[in-house]
């Protein structure tokens, strides 16, 4: 390419494959969820993709509701959902539940997990949990500029090999790495690239057979429910909220919506 990579996402460049659509698009081909720990720059990545100016600020907990935007890339329309930051899929605060429910039951086509390059190890906890429940994920290691200043280098290829999903290094504040991120999102969304996410930590033999038994019990009872395996895992851990959701029928209604092909989040114009 003759021009620097930043030009690829510049709205002025007519040759660019990216068209930032702002808030609305007429039809959506793929839904992208942006998840990650608090204050890793999810909203900055979101703004970079959609051309929107969602409020960003340097403190954890700034985004508490779901923001939606859209862009078109290489001929397909994408809807992007910016989620509140969350440390874990097991947490219970209202803002973190918004994120968890969407990743679990919102059926995003691609889950983009944004990480802080300077705190990779801690951020990996959430990444591993997300990989546990979805086959289509892209890991975006953000803030690499900050990491470089601190003398931290991330080996993206080794990380991608370990995790089994594409890993992109970005510095969203200055637009670095966004073109690669877009390419990876497209490849995973279209199925051109098939992920083999790492699922090491629940591969205990005893656990696995118990999980399989529960999945076999729950699956037929709740046809259309995404992430049955996750529900089974939580049940096995004795999570009271999941037990309540089964009793109250909340889980049933989620499953029914899935069965009728309805989306928890609508794809078209709202």
């Amino acid at each position: 390419m003759a021009y620097p990579e930043q030009c690829e996402i510049c709205p002025v460049n007519r040759g660019s494959k990216l068209v930032k659509l702002g808030e609305t698009s007429d039809s959506t081909d793929y839904v992208i969820a942006l998840a990650g720990n608090p204050n890793v720059g999810k909203s900055t990545v979101f703004n970079n993709l959609t051309g929107l100016r969602q409020h960003t600020g340097n403190w954890p907990g700034k985004t508490v509701t779901r923001a939606e935007g859209a862009f078109s890339y290489d001929g397909s329309n994408y809807k992007v959902v910016d989620l509140p930051g969350t440390y874990s899929l097991m947490s219970t605060s209202t803002d973190e539940e918004v994120a968890r429910d969407f990743i679990l039951f919102g059926r995003p086509d691609v889950a983009v997990v944004v990480m802080d390059a300077t705190r990779l190890e801690r951020n990996l906890n959430l990444v591993l949990q997300v990989l546990e429940i979805t086959d289509k994920a892209v890991v975006c290691v953000n803030l690499v500029d900050e990491a470089e200043r601190k003398g931290i280098t991330i080996d993206d290829r080794s990380l991608a090999r370990e995790l089994g999903v594409p890993v992109v290094l970005t510095a969203a504040r200055i637009g670095r790495g966004i073109p690669e991120l877009l390419r990876s999102i497209r490849d995973v969304a279209t199925g051109a690239l098939v992920c083999k996410p790492r699922r090491g930590w629940t591969e205990d033999k005893k656990v696995k057979s118990a999980l399989d038994e529960l999945v076999a019990l729950i699956g037929p009872e709740y046809p259309g429910l995404p992430n049955v395996r996750w529900v089974a895992l939580r049940l096995l851990e004795g999570d009271q909220r999941i037990i309540d959701a089964i009793r109250s029928g909340e889980l049933k209604s989620l499953a029914l919506r899935g069965e009728h092909g309805e989306e928890v989040i609508s794809r078209g114009k709202e």
Binding site: K150, T202, E237
Partner: peptide, 21 residues
């Protein structure tokens, strides 16, 4: 145990892909 395994896994992966000068 699941949480412990999760943390171990994270440490293991981070150890392989992060270098601090």
């Amino acid at each position: 145990r699941a949480i412990e395994a999760l943390y171990e896994e994270a440490t293991h992966i981070a150890g392989r892909s992060v270098t601090i000068s």
